[in-house]
């Protein structure tokens, strides 16, 4: 099993698309920082327009914490999409290159093989989120400094710099769980569809559908509380003025549960299917 995991890590970091994906991710981050540098003041002005009639403002809201928050918003679409492409490629490339048949001719257990892919996919996802967090904190604080954070969520919520840092860190942790779910789902989709193009289209559709369903109100019932698409905004819960830890814990456990469910289903299907 350990050898399989090592082999999967080797393959992942040998393939060029992994680096293209990471490059794309950090390009998005750089674009967000650059656009904030040139347009950030206008955005803040727009946000506080009505308040300006009544108040003077002392201090600036265009600071590193706001920038990290803007980068965090890539968790909605950009980051999961990139992760899904890379992670699903871990299996579709093996189908395409027919290396899968070669591996299966060896004395390798099918479930151990696919489980090692899931494990490496999860570790890779966590590493990417960690790299994103470190780079966004580092670059944002270096270029824009620290300061109070303003977020529009059920009104305007202002957080002190230290409180903002605390919330942003936790939201990266929570966001990582959501990203793991999408990575795991994309690998399961790859097991089902095998072909890269089909897998990417279905994965992108899955992501878009999840984002659309997140905004659909199914009413105050168990389905609304338990549906997987409703869990992907859990990282945003850290930006309500009062943090609802109970809800965050519940959603996080449920998200881990869904990831395990998708992973279990993927392993089952891979085990049952013929390699060909």
């Amino acid at each position: 099993m350990y050898a399989l995991i090592k082999a999967e890590i080797f393959k992942l970091f040998r393939q060029g698309k992994t680096y293209y994906a990471i490059g794309a991710l950090f390009s998005i981050e750089a674009i967000i920082l650059l656009s904030a540098y040139f347009q950030g003041t206008n955005i803040i002005d727009l946000l506080l327009e009505n308040l300006k009639q009544r108040f003077y403002f002392e201090g600036t809201l265009l600071n590193g914490n706001l920038l990290v928050y803007l980068i965090l918003n890539t968790l909605w679409f950009h980051l999961p999409l990139i992760l899904m492409i890379v992670v699903s490629g871990m299996l579709t490339a093996e189908y395409k290159d027919r290396t899968l048949q070669t591996i299966m001719l060896q004395p390798v257990s099918k479930w151990k093989f696919i489980l090692s892919k899931y494990i490496v996919a999860i570790v890779f996802t966590l590493l990417v989120v960690l790299a994103l967090a470190l780079s966004s904190f580092g670059l944002s604080y270096f270029f824009f400094g620290k300061g109070d954070l303003v977020v529009y969520l059920n009104g305007l919520n202002f957080f002190d710099a230290s409180d903002a840092y605390y919330r942003l860190r936790w939201s990266f942790v929570s966001g990582a769980l959501s990203m793991v779910f999408f990575s795991v789902a994309s690998l399961t989709i790859a097991i089902l569809f095998k072909e890269a193009a089909k897998t990417w289209i279905v994965s992108a559709f899955f992501l878009i559908l999840s984002n659309i369903l997140l905004k659909v109100d199914f009413g105050d019932n168990w389905f609304n509380a338990l549906f997987f698409a409703k869990l992907n905004d859990t990282w945003q819960y850290f930006f309500y003025y009062q943090i609802n830890w109970e809800q965050i814990h519940f959603n996080s456990l449920l998200s881990i549960g869904y990831s395990l469910l998708f992973m279990g289903a993927g392993i089952y299907w891979f085990h049952r299917k013929d390699i060909g």
Binding site: E49, R54, V151, N154, L156, K215, D217, Q236
Partner: peptide, 21 residues
Amino acid sequence: NFEIEKIRIPINFMGKDTDID
């Protein structure tokens, strides 16, 4: 004490946009 107009935020700006809110 003062009167203040509700804020107008561009759609989808700065976080989740909930219709109910």
